[in-house]
Nucleic acid binder design. Structure first.
Length: 110
DNA sequence: CTCTTGACGCCGG
DNA sequence: TCCGGCGCCAAGA
């Protein structure tokens, strides 16, 4: 009841994913594979699965493909948010400049 | 226990 | 630059 869209019970790995994604500063992004590596487990697919099921309460639009493209089924939503937050985008604004927008991690300064 | 699926990533054409 | 195929790992049926 506190959270909507949450199906079933999240695994511990899923909770770690949500926690890290919630810490990503506005205007910055992480790739699914980046999140998996920072948590030190599973793989990019597990991160995507966690966000697909429990990502309703976190800025999931800050987690994208390694090449800077948004997740299927939410391209328009993600692009709109990037524009709002001033995320570094390509000239056409269709994808994120990973090299510039990639968040260093929870320890790195903003 | 086995098979299929999936908000991915990388390489080759 | 775009498209397709293969590899990885865990959850679900």
């Amino acid at each position: 009841m506190s959270e909507a869209g949450q199906r079933g019970v999240p695994t511990e790995f899923a909770e770690q994913v949500l926690d890290l994604v919630a810490r990503i500063p506005a205007g910055r992004v992480l790739a699914y594979g980046d999140v998996a590596r920072m948590l030190g487990g599973g793989g990019p697919r597990q991160v995507g699965a966690a966000l697909a099921r429990f990502g309703a309460g976190v800025p999931w639009h800050r987690v994208i493909h390694a090449d800077g493209t948004p997740p299927p089924g939410h391209e328009a939503q993600a692009r709109a948010r990037w524009r709002e937050e001033g995320t570094p985008l390509t000239a056409d604004g269709s994808r994120v400049r990973m090299h510039a927008a990639r968040w260093a991690g929870p320890q790195a300064p903003s």
